[in-house]
Design a binder for these strands. Sequence first.
DNA 1: AACCAAGGCAACCGCTCGCAG
DNA 2: CCTGCGAGCGGTTGCCTTGGT
Length: 329
Amino acid sequence: MGKSTHCVASSGMKKGPWTLAEDQKLLAYVQKHGHGNWQSLPQKAGLQRCGKSCRLRWRNYLRPDIRRGNFSLQEDRTIIQLHALLGNKWSAITAHLPKRTDNEVKNYWHSHLKKRLALKGYDPVTHKPKTTIFGSANGSTDDPKTSTNLNHIAQWESARLQAEARFGRDLELHKQAHHLYNNNDISATSTILLDHSKDFGPTDQLYGQNTPQCLDILRAWESILMSNYSEAAGGQDHVNSFGNGLAGDFEPPIISAISSSNGSSLMDCFFHEPIRQCFDENYGTSITEPFTAVPHNMGFKNGACLEDFGLWEIIMQGRKDCPISGISM
DNA sequence: AACCAAGGCAACCGCTCGCAG
DNA sequence: CCTGCGAGCGGTTGCCTTGGT
């Protein structure tokens, strides 16, 4: 283990809140020279701070690509779902929240989301109901809402296990596909991916070998909810009624996003109405909150967020045989 | 208006990880 | 392989703000 690098207040280093002048000094220095070695930066920049403090200030506050302000419902959901999957891995969670810092997400979790879950009777650590899954605190499951919530939690757990299993299989299959692709055996690559899509649906081939696990579980969960909803709705398509204008079957949501041409946001495509309702019931968020639309200039002409397809983009970059039309590369 | 408690958030601290020598 | 160092991560602290009395 390395020597501790924390700031020593007695050595003349300043601590506490940063002043505007300090911010300006740090900002100016980094913009001109880059941060380079954080340990030596304060001296070069003329700051009475330790390097660690400078690094933190830059990362969490001064960096130009930071989005501040309220978290959208979409971000809320992402945090909650990823926290259920990853636990307190704030950096990993933040990796899926563009322009947010891990510190901000962590604080937001502790001050807002955790409480919301607790308020709804869920353990913020396990994301399971605080009472036993087979009955409420008073031993009754008569309350239909409680019953629904428990059912959703069971579905979530089922999705998680399903996703874990699938992730393992995905990895192996895509290793094979990737190997063949590297050897220019496009035909064999397609065969593997198409066979795979028979089992798991076509979205998987979009991601290539590095399917993000979080998206995988979201899809798994969603597919369970969608199939259940379909049954409950007597086979009628209520799912697509929200806004992406698609008719008919329960298409995998990401494919819905890609094939939609009316400018609907990723929210519209990725999380259909019943899932929002379910989420609202489970986590107490308000569906009346305006959804943050994904800017239409982020990649897909229809508004789907290219960042969500980042790995696929990397894989497909420069390829002329991109299977989906209408995508800006 | 003054006080107090609670909440929110920026910053700190200690530890681990990864890498170079 | 071992050691030292810088960077990153997650938990915690403490100050400031806000809301209630």
